[in-house]
């Protein structure tokens, strides 16, 4: 089984520790991933703004990078959602690209999806004694259909107290360029999200998309809130490290 990592531009440039945690965890589970370097970005920033020609040229880097692999796994429900839901439309113009895009769509999995559905693992043997709450990303859950997989993985973490997030399905206000273009509106949305996270009194906020977590975490950092923001892969990997120090807060 040849597995490639689609790291996403956000994780690559801003949160490499998320990609690393994912690679290490998969390695523990017996899956050695490869990282084809032609990959850059799924093209969403241009696509969602209406510049499909620009998006297509960027998206082509993924078609090229992942051609030789059986599976593509990625730490982002949003970027996978882009491939899964929109690449068929984006590459509708020419038959050859459309075929390659369809092939990519078939073999691309979001991280938790890959663990639960492909590897059929819901217990990675992690232990993480903390109170945590989970924010589902809109694209992950609605475009890609990843709903129960992250929760199933979290439920098997020893010592983890998982508390439901009020209004969990409401968007955090990220929305890519939306967060900058409609800054005030996006801020009002993230303020609501942060308030709901606070209500859970969780020490850790877990998610499967660094876009949302960057937004919610960025707001909490500005307000000086002491909630640790983690990608699911980070929590699971740290949880498998016996020596991991429980620096849950701060």
């Amino acid at each position: 089984m040849k597995v490639a990592l689609f790291v996403t531009c956000l994780v690559d440039s801003l949160y490499p520790q998320v990609g690393e945690a994912m690679v290490r965890l998969l390695h523990r589970l017996g899956v050695d991933v490869d990282f084809p370097e032609q990959q850059t970005c799924c093209g969403q920033p241009a696509f969602n703004s209406g510049y499909w020609d620009d998006a297509r040229e960027v998206a082509r880097t993924l078609l090229d990078a992942f051609d030789p692999y059986d599976y593509v796994v990625s730490p982002s429900g949003s970027c996978c959602g882009m491939i899964y839901h929109y690449y068929p439309d984006l590459f509708a113009g020419d038959a050859e690209s459309r075929r390659r895009a369809a092939a990519l769509t078939e073999k691309t999995y979001e991280f938790s999806q890959f663990l639960v559905r492909v590897l059929e693992v819901s217990d990675v043997g992690a232990s993480f004694p903390a109170r945590a709450t989970y924010h589902p990303s809109c694209h992950g859950s609605r475009l890609l259909g990843v709903r129960d997989e992250p929760l199933e993985l979290l439920r098997h973490v020893r010592g983890l107290e998982l508390v439901p997030l009020p209004y969990a399905a409401d968007c955090c206000g990220f929305g890519g360029t939306f967060a900058v273009k409609m800054g005030e509106l996006s801020s009002a949305m993230v303020e609501d999200k942060v308030r709901h996270v606070e209500e859970t009194q969780a020490q850790v906020l877990v998610g499967t998309d660094m876009g949302c977590l960057m937004n919610i975490g960025g707001r909490m950092a500005r307000e000086g809130r002491r909630v640790r923001v983690m990608h699911l892969a980070q929590l699971l990997y740290e949880g498998t490290q016996a020596q991991h120090r429980r620096e849950i807060v701060g």
């Binding site: 440039s13 801003l14 949160y15 490499p16 800054g183 005030e184 993230v190 960025g218 707001r219 950092a221």
Partner: peptide
């Protein structure tokens, strides 16, 4: 639009 209300992350020391 972002930084008015939120801290923005920096590029990692090593991508």
């Amino acid at each position: 639009g972002w930084t008015q209300t939120r801290r923005a992350p920096v590029l990692a020391k090593r991508s």
